[in-house]
């Protein structure tokens, strides 16, 4: 379960304080499919970064499975990201010097898994997203949709409980976007918690739960 309590994030821009998140209280149960919607600058991505342990709050707490991540060290946060969270970014964010297989195996490498095992698992994940015939292609040799599927395979590499998508369909056409949403839905049906940020209403409509954000606050 993910829970935020009085979660606040303040950025200092020049002399002014900007509330990216303002007293956000939110609960996401295990296995839920949540879409966070709202206009640009409403704090969606900041919230996602907090839940994804990429950033620390200015005040308040983020509990993941009962642990308040606000108090964890950078290394402990890295461990949580590695074990419990899979990220899918709008820009795919693959390492362009590595091929698809190596990209998917990268989180396992940081987890200290042996090479043979890592490659075997990465291959399985790529096959599960339908890219069994693209294992040795570099990102630059893949289409946007294919790259995003590699990114999803990478997010799945560590078998995380939580999948976080920051505009995962933002850079692909509608058909590919729907295919990616199908995939995320499938993962949700397997029991994983899926949280996506989007400003596409259609995509948001496919999630079981929608949270609206505006000016750093969540309005259900």
């Amino acid at each position: 379960m993910i829970r935020t309590e009085h979660l606040t994030k303040i950025y200092r821009m020049g002399g002014a304080e900007v509330y990216a998140l303002h007293d956000v209280n939110l609960e996401i149960q295990d296995g839920e499919f949540v879409a966070i919607v709202g206009p640009s600058g409403s704090g969606k991505s900041t919230l996602l970064n907090m839940i994804g342990c990429l950033d620390k709050p200015t005040s308040g707490s983020v509990f993941i499975d009962g642990v308040d991540t606000a108090w964890l060290s950078d290394n402990e946060l890295a461990e949580i990201r590695r074990e419990k969270i899979g990220f899918v970014f709008q820009q795919y964010n693959l390492v362009h010097t590595l091929n698809a297989l190596e990209n998917v195996a990268l989180p396992l490498f940081f987890a200290g898994m042996k090479r043979e095992m890592r490659m075997e698992m990465a291959k399985e994940k790529l096959e599960s997203v339908g890219l069994g015939d693209r294992l040795y292609h570099k990102p630059s040799e893949l289409s946007g949709g294919q790259q995003q599927r590699v990114a999803i395979a990478r997010a799945l590499a560590n078998d995380p409980e939580i999948i976080i998508g920051d505009e995962p369909t933002g850079n692909v056409d509608t058909t590919t976007g729907n295919a990616i949403m199908d995939m995320l839905e499938g993962l949700n049906k397997e029991g994983r918690t899926v949280i996506v940020v989007t400003h596409n209403i259609e995509i948001a409509a496919r999630a079981g739960i929608r949270k609206r954000m505006r000016d750093g606050r969540v309005r259900d």
Partner: peptide, 15 residues
């Protein structure tokens, strides 16, 4: 950017 991605997918500072 790449460093950010590596960290996001679980790389520690010392990695």
């Amino acid at each position: 950017h790449e460093i950010g991605v590596m960290k996001a997918i679980g790389a520690k500072s010392r990695d």
